[in-house]
Amino acid sequence: MSKKRILVVDDEPDFVMLVKKYLEKAGFQVEMAFNGVEALEKVHANPPDGMVLDVMMPEKDGYEVCAELKGDEKYADIPIVLLTAVADHVSSTRYSHFDGISMKADDYLPKPASAEDICESVKSLVD
């Protein structure tokens, strides 16, 4: 059986590498993208089985990417774990827990989420 492919999207390369290492150890094949535009290009070229998507990124943020994918029936079924460094108690920004849920993300983890937590979330959504 082929491994499930997960696209990890974050503008912090060190974080992407850490998550990649954990997901590979858990048996996933991992692709990487470092901004929302690159993520969408990769999804359109070869849709992954799941995504780990940072919210705050240059060019196109995670909310925009999530909204675009969930709004397109061709990609709406791809499970998305949204990650954000913004605290729940900051309600004055557009980056809040509520927004993550309203974006129809399949899971939502505050940063700093551990690579283990991210891995568990991906496993529960993709397996």
Score class of each variant (00 low, 15 high):
residue 105 A to T: 02
residue 5 R to W: 00
residue 24 E to A: 07
residue 42 K to T: 01
residue 34 F to C: 06
residue 37 V to K: 15
residue 124 S to M: 13
residue 1 M to D: 01
residue 83 L to M: 12
residue 26 A to D: 15
residue 85 A to T: 11
residue 19 V to G: 05
residue 84 T to G: 01
residue 7 L to Y: 09
residue 11 D to Q: 09
residue 89 H to N: 12
residue 90 V to Q: 11
residue 60 K to A: 15
residue 36 G to Y: 10
residue 28 F to L: 05
residue 110 P to N: 15
residue 66 C to Q: 03
residue 80 I to W: 01
residue 114 S to I: 02
residue 1 M to H: 05
residue 108 Y to H: 13
residue 110 P to I: 00
residue 53 L to P: 09
residue 87 A to M: 04
residue 29 Q to Y: 13
residue 35 N to S: 05
residue 28 F to E: 05
residue 60 K to C: 08
residue 42 K to Q: 14
residue 9 V to D: 08
residue 28 F to H: 08
residue 74 K to D: 13
residue 78 I to E: 06
residue 108 Y to A: 04
residue 29 Q to L: 10
residue 122 V to M: 06
residue 14 D to N: 14
residue 44 H to W: 09
residue 53 L to D: 07
residue 100 G to I: 02
residue 107 D to M: 03
residue 85 A to G: 15
residue 103 M to K: 10
residue 125 L to W: 12
residue 23 L to C: 11
residue 88 D to F: 05
residue 44 H to F: 12
residue 121 S to H: 02
residue 9 V to K: 10
residue 23 L to G: 05
residue 23 L to D: 09
residue 93 T to N: 03
residue 33 A to S: 15
residue 3 K to H: 03
residue 115 A to V: 09
residue 8 V to N: 03
residue 60 K to R: 15
residue 64 E to S: 13
residue 17 M to R: 14
residue 26 A to G: 10
residue 2 S to D: 13
residue 14 D to A: 14
residue 88 D to G: 11
residue 111 K to G: 07
residue 62 G to P: 10
residue 60 K to E: 14
residue 15 F to R: 03
residue 29 Q to G: 00
residue 36 G to E: 08
residue 22 Y to M: 06
residue 72 D to Q: 09
residue 46 N to R: 11
residue 84 T to I: 00
residue 115 A to K: 12
residue 76 A to N: 04
residue 27 G to C: 10
residue 1 M to R: 03
residue 48 P to I: 02
residue 64 E to D: 14
residue 58 P to R: 13
